[in-house]
Write a protein that binds this DNA or RNA. Sequence first.
DNA 1: CTTTGAATTTGACCTGCGTCAAAAAAGTTC
DNA 2: GAACTTTTTTGACGCAGGTCAAATTCAAAG
Lengths: 190, 190
Amino acid sequence: MIGFTESLFLKSMRKICPISDGSVALMAARLEECSFAKKDMILRAGVYSRYAWLVEKGLIRHFWLYDGKETVTSFSTEGGLIFSMDELYYGRKSEEFAQAVEAVEAWRIPLADLEALFRENIELCNWGRLIHQNEYRRLHRSHMERLTMPAERRYEMFRAQFPEICSRAPLGDIASYLGMDPSTLSRIRS
Amino acid sequence: MIGFTESLFLKSMRKICPISDGSVALMAARLEECSFAKKDMILRAGVYSRYAWLVEKGLIRHFWLYDGKETVTSFSTEGGLIFSMDELYYGRKSEEFAQAVEAVEAWRIPLADLEALFRENIELCNWGRLIHQNEYRRLHRSHMERLTMPAERRYEMFRAQFPEICSRAPLGDIASYLGMDPSTLSRIRS
DNA sequence: CTTTGAATTTGACCTGCGTCAAAAAAGTTC
DNA sequence: GAACTTTTTTGACGCAGGTCAAATTCAAAG
């Protein structure tokens, strides 16, 4: 894999907010390359992971297991940050799974190091805050769409906002994310 | 109204994380008492509000207006912080309304001052972060419930988690929050 | 290639919940 | 407390979308 300095990941970090070379170096010093094959679990519910992953390539789906049924809560792709919020913020075991849908290349960083970087470096701290805020907005919007729009319209919205994911993720996962049956989504698509 | 130092609001702040008397004083210096009658709008979509409100007493509902239809997104009560995330984080006009359901007593603080407090004071900053995280969790959970549970179960969950709001808010608002028809909730209740 | 299992499509049927409407109850205003 | 508004309850009915199941296409592994 290419170095962090030339990575797609760093590019997308810098699209969000300014990060000086010094801050990049601080971060890069903690990173370790790693990769996952299709279907590998990156996070598991009921387990401490101790790491966060910066996604350079690939597609990940996040889901809940509830009453034996999977519910997809979000997707991550190039530029995404994978971690268990339960663990980073509350020191609890994760309630969510994260699984590679496509093969994934990433850097991993110990959660404790990430936390320290956030605490000590204002640029990285702001980056973390902005990631969190954007995630909140996505969820809020998706919740509203679920409450106010019929299935077909929800799919259109999704396609408009995430065309890339729409073509890369399997139908079943998208249907689950949108809160509808796979058969319903299949019918909508035709 | 009583002083901020003896307020319920401060008590509930300190339940979330430690706040020294010094930080309290910093905050108190910026506060101004204010109140709202039942049905008063505290935030309006399409408008800059310039303030945040610390709720000492009363009940507020937050909602979206979409296609002429209101959708309740959350409730705030004693100890809650009311502000437009669109404005504080993105400098944009609010997309949400906030309206007093019961008469409200609160302190208001200019958004710019709140931002400065967050930026400069680590205790207040952490308090802000925690509020935000809790809000995210609530939304996440509520979204999952909507995706995975039938109407009746969703109401039970709501009642278990927010018994207070459940008895104070009108049926119509709770139904909207839970994403069901008022008539459905009325039937569930009996 | 062939096999085997998973994902998607398609059809027939069914049901939870929304819609519409009207009556009853509760709250507001003068 | 009478007139009016708003909220809640109740009933009849319909449909979007779920469930079940079988057929088909796709993908991975040997």
